[in-house]
Structures are given as C-alpha cells and as structure tokens.
Design a protein around this nucleic acid. Structure first.
Lengths: 239, 239
DNA sequence: GTCCGCATACTGGTCTGACCACTTGACCAC
DNA sequence: GTGGTCAAGTGGTCAGACCAGTATGCGGAC
C-alpha cells in the first residue's frame, strides 16, 4: 500500500477554493458582487484576514476585481484569467473536464513541434546526453506513471534547449495542469510513451540541428495518441 | 492632456513587488530561506498580515514554498512559475527585457497560425462580422496605440473561434504581458497593423473554413514584423 | 561514545477587534 | 441642476494574542 502525504486544508485555501468554484461553476456570474469581507467571514465562520487572503489571491488570478471602498465584483474569467488557472479548470470537483483536456491536447500538438524546432536551431551541448538519459528511463521503467514522468523530463530538456522564457513558462503551466491528473491519464497515454523509436527520432533531429526534421519527428511522436484521445473525447461529448 | 487614473500603491502590493524583485533578480537565490514573517514585517515597517498576504501570493505564483513551522524557501522560478509571471519578467524596474520580448515574439509566431487553423476548422457564425469590425477599426484609427488595440481585438475574436480553453488562457496571459508595454511597442509594431490586406486574407481563409490557408495567411501577416524585431533584438544582445 | 527522546524556541496559521481610507448615495443649500 | 456635506458601508491596515507545527540541542539511557 503506497502511503501518501496527508493533505492539510488550510483555512484560506478552503475559502479560496469555495469562491473559485463559485466563479468557475457560474454560481457567481460575471458582474455579480461578492458579499463583503465581513459578511463572508461571518457566513463561512472564519476570520476576516482568512477571507481577505483568499480574496487577494482571487484578484491576483484576475478572477475578481476589488475596489477600495466599493464592492468586489466577479470578472469574466474566460477573458481575463491566465494560463495558471488551467489546473483548476481541468479537474473540478475531482472530475476531469474533457473539453479542457481536449484543448490541452490540441495546444500540446500545436506547440511542441515549434519548441522542438527552436531547440534544434539553438542546440546545446548537454542536451543530447540528457535526452538519452530520459529515453533510457523510458525504456527501463515499467510503471506507467513513472514512464509519464520520464516523458515529461524528456520534454523538459527540449524546452530548456529552446531557450525561450515564454515557452518555458507555458510548459510549466501545462505541466502543473497535467501532473495532478497524471495517474488517471497514464493509461490513456501509455501508447505514446511506448513509442521509443519516435523519441529517438526527435533526439536525432535535434542533434542534427535540423528544425524541420525536429518539427516532423515531434508531430509523428505526438499525433497518434493525440488523435485517438481527441476523437474519443469527441465521441464522449456527443453522448 | 490625457488624464490617467492615479495609481495607488497598496502595502501588500509593495511588499509583494519587493520580494518578487528579490527572487527574479537573483538576490534571493533558489533554495535560500526568506526571513520570517515577523522579521520581514519589522524590517519593512508594516504589519504581519500585510507581509503574509504578499507571501501567500508569492506562493500561489509558485515562486516560494511555505512550510508550516519551518522556513519559507525560494523556488527556482524558471522551473516552477507559470505563464502568469510573464508580465513581471517582460518589464522589470520599468525596463523591457529584450530576451523575454524575443521569446514572446517567437511564441506568438509559433502559436497564432495554429490557433487560426483551429478557428478555421470550427468556424462560427458571428466571427466574420466581428473580424470585419476589427479590420474597419484598424483602417479607421490613425493613432498607433489604438491600432494595436484593434489588432488585439482581431486576435481576440480568432482565439474565441478556436474554441480552446488552453489557447484562450494563453492568449490572456500573453496579452497581460503585452498591454502594459503596448505604448512603448506601438511604434515598433506599426508596420504589422498597417498591413490591412494581410488581415483580410486571414479573415478570408477563416470564412473559407480552410485551416491550411488560415495558417499560411497568419504566417504571412506576422512574419515580417516578427523577423525584423527578432533580428533587431539579436543585434542588441550582441552589443 | 552513540542514540533516542523530549523540552524549547523558533516558524507559520488563525483569530479578535480596532481604526483608517475610500466610495456611494441621500440630502441639502445654492 | 450643480455642488457640498454627511453618514453608512466597504476595503486597507494595524496590533497583539494564541494555536499548531518544526527544528534543535541537551540530557539521559544504553
């Protein structure tokens, strides 16, 4: 039996999640006013600083707008929130939102080849060894979850080599969304991480410093699982 | 004389910015411990709740790690922070970081064509009128800044039509990074927003529901300014 | 001498209650 | 109408206290 660290819910986290859920689930529509901090504290049975902390974090995520002296209003999160909201949208109330999952797969399919092309252009001494190591780990591990992690490490190195802050942060955000759901998704993505040859081709294209080949190899690697899953999700959405 | 809303600095914001700068500028290296909340409050001459609020926001951005009872340590932000950090990295101490700017241009060049292709696939009734409106605004406005905003609105509609949460949030994050620097950048991007015909071709490809044409048209629209700026930045980085 | 265990002194987590700063809207004088 | 005034409600900030966890070093058991 695998033991896991016990999750301790802190009060402000709890408050944050409740307000977040209200906004994301639409109970609090854009333009609505939040109850005052004092009122929220009373209703939730916590202190005002706890409420305040949660509210400030909501504001930082651009989900609400706080006006000194005035009311705090809910923003249209789809138009204002940043990519850091993705994890909260992907898994909501413990359930995976398949339309969000689909969009992540699409984004990955669109972006990864370009990142690989950039990485091929810029090269990097330590890159190829690091990739070999990841591929070896991919080959050695038989635990599906561990293989997923190894694949993430592989891409981590590629992103590093692309030497782009924007792509780096994007990768971090996408990874932050993916990791909590990793165990649930490991089975679905198993086919991809088993295609060792495809990983090797990406690596080869990178070492050859050939951006077009890197783009193509990455597409070949990602397309099968992506296409399968997206069509599966499509069928799911129909029913 | 154009009047602007007066900017009021709130205490927790100020504290947040100071800690953020420390982390981003490297004065606080990854692995370092932050002073205790009480100590920070004392040193900065503010109350503990104010410090606490700032620290919690830093933690939410995954820049630091707080452990109950233990010390608060600085994380390696390049590996952990999400795309929402981009605005802070792009303009730091009032100066534009050109390497960040370059990476944003690259990301835009890589992603926009794919988003356009998705938008072409999915189509959308109201899309074409909305695009026409944006193009008209682009044509009518002679203020460079206003034209930049019109261009943003154009892409806003395209992203909407792509119907992808992940790309939507990405766009929001990139926009949040771009807008504060918009006035400074309007001149540099002027050539692009003047290429009305290129916008019309994107629009035409979208209406034709032709993903490949949309991809190509978007590349044609973005490539000139992107290439010019990136090579200018490259020269700048040499010197 | 080594190692375990516990007191202790730190850290962050939370609360209370107060006061300041700002916005809103109603009311009043002009 | 226009502008001034005021009261009520909101967020912003503070002080100080206590709870809850973590690290550390000292002592005693072996």
């Amino acid at each position: 039996m695998p033991l896991k660290p016990v999750a301790r819910r802190l009060v402000p986290d709890e408050v944050f999640d409740q307000i977040l859920s209200g906004v994301v689930d639409g109970e609090l529509a854009a333009g609505d006013n939040l109850p005052s901090e004092r009122r929220l504290a009373e209703v939730l049975g916590v202190s005002r600083p706890a409420v305040r902390e949660a509210i400030q974090r909501m504001a930082q995520a651009r989900l609400i707008e706080v006006r000194h002296g005035g009311a705090t209003t809910v923003r249209e999160f789809r138009r204002s929130a940043g990519l850091d909201l993705l994890p909260q949208l992907l898994v909501r109330n413990g359930e995976l939102d398949v339309s969000v999952a689909r969009s992540i797969l699409e984004a990955r399919m669109a972006i990864a080849p370009e990142v690989a092309a950039l990485a091929a252009e810029r090269g990097g001494r330590a890159l190829y060894d690091a990739l070999d190591e990841s591929i070896a780990a991919l080959d050695a591990d038989d635990d599906p979850v561990a293989r997923q992690r190894a694949a993430l490490t592989f891409w981590d190195h590629v992103v590093d080599a692309a030497d782009s802050v924007a792509f780096r942060l994007m990768f971090n955000s996408l990874r932050a969304a993916y990791e909590p759901a990793l165990e649930a998704l490991a089975v679905l993505m198993e086919a991809e991480v088993s295609a060792l040859e495809a990983y090797r081709e990406v690596r080869a294209a990178l070492e050859a410093r050939d951006p077009d080949a890197a783009r193509a190899a990455t597409e070949n690697l990602l397309r099968p699982a992506t296409a399968t899953l997206i069509s599966a999700i499509h069928d799911l959405e129909e029913s």
